[in-house]
């Protein structure tokens, strides 16, 4: 009895093994070994990817050009700003391709440690400020002047704002003077920290949808602005040096020239990839387009970059190293 069971089981098992082996005969494509990576004077080029879509647009286009035109092997590393800057010193990051200000980091890594250098503007201008959803700007046209904010403070009251109006701040990576601004402009508001960009976007999206009041910190370029066109509230105009003392600041944020930072050794080597990064320059519209491909049309960054590059060969030509 027992031996019969044994035989049956054994037969079953070997049958399935044989079946699997016959599949082999049916074959299919065999896996071929790949040749060693194609040579060129550009070897490996490491871009940090900071976590926002606009940045990813810059990086995707640069990476695409580096790979197709210069034959580089591009490595993308997903990193927050601070860690990416650290990476210059350890030789693990070659380039950051969209930098918002960060004077503290510039001082630390460019001046003090001398591990990084500036590689010029991206051509994109960054605007930081306080925004309201479009329906509010329509309904309360004078709300875009900061002088009237106190008038509307009660509109923005929430459970979080302790009886005052709520000013929503976002991702802590971004430069903010908002607590000082509220104080120095004598506004009846309380800064509430949303803590992350998605939370901020979700708050604006919902506010527009349900016609609820929201006042929050935001910035342009950002892909979300092409979904809902937030309206900026004008603060007292920025004057050179009015934000020198963060305690006393009472003016709007400056317009940021978004620039590129590269590691010192990468710049010193002066290879084709460095020249590409150095030459790279486009406009807010260009970046918004690619960002929209990624964020709203659900393309992968690679597909988005390819599509834009195909349509903008002339711009790309200008970035290539002269040789």
């Amino acid at each position: 009895m027992r031996s019969i069971v044994n035989k049956r089981v054994l037969a079953g098992v070997s049958l399935s093994a044989v079946a699997a082996l016959t599949l082999t005969a049916c074959g299919g494509d065999k896996i071929e070994s790949t040749d060693a990576a194609d040579s060129g004077d550009c070897s490996t080029f490491t871009i940090a990817i900071n976590p926002w879509v606009g940045y990813e647009a810059n990086a995707a286009v640069i990476a695409h050009v580096a790979e197709t035109e210069l034959g580089c092997k591009v490595v993308k590393k997903d990193l927050k700003e601070e860690i990416a800057w650290q990476g210059f010193g350890t030789g693990q990051v070659d380039a950051i391709v969209e930098n918002w200000g960060h004077d503290d980091l510039k001082k630390k890594y460019i001046e003090d440690q001398q591990t990084a250098v500036n590689a010029g503007s991206t051509g994109v201008e960054g605007v930081i400020g306080w925004y309201v959803p479009p329906w509010m700007a329509e309904e309360y046209p004078d709300i875009t002047d900061w002088n009237n904010l106190n008038k509307y403070a009660s509109l923005f009251e929430t459970t979080e704002s302790g009886g005052k109006g709520q000013l929503l701040d976002g991702d802590p990576s971004f430069v903010t003077n908002d607590e000082a601004l509220v104080k120095n402009l004598g506004l009846d508001y309380q800064v509430v920290y949303a803590g992350s960009e998605p939370a901020l976007i979700q708050a604006f999206r919902q506010a527009e949808e349900k016609k609820e009041p929201v006042l929050g910190y935001f910035y342009d370029p950002q892909w979300f602005l092409s979904e809902i066109e937030l309206v900026k509230v004008d603060l007292p105009e920025y004057q050179e040096g009015c934000d020198a003392d963060p305690e006393k600041v009472a003016c709007d944020y400056p317009v940021y020239d978004l620039d590129k930072i590269v590691s010192k050794s990468f710049a010193d080597a002066n290879g084709p990839a460095y020249q590409l990064v150095d030459n790279f320059n486009w406009s807010n519209e260009d970046q918004n387009l690619v960002a929209r491909y990624i964020a709203q049309d659900n393309m992968s960054p690679e597909e988005a970059a390819e599509k834009w590059v195909e349509a903008n060969q002339d711009k790309v030509e200008a970035w290539l190293p002269q040789s």
Partner: peptide, 8 residues
């Protein structure tokens, strides 16, 4: 989170 995001 802020400490993770900003060196200072």
């Amino acid at each position: 989170v802020a400490g993770f995001s900003q060196g200072q």
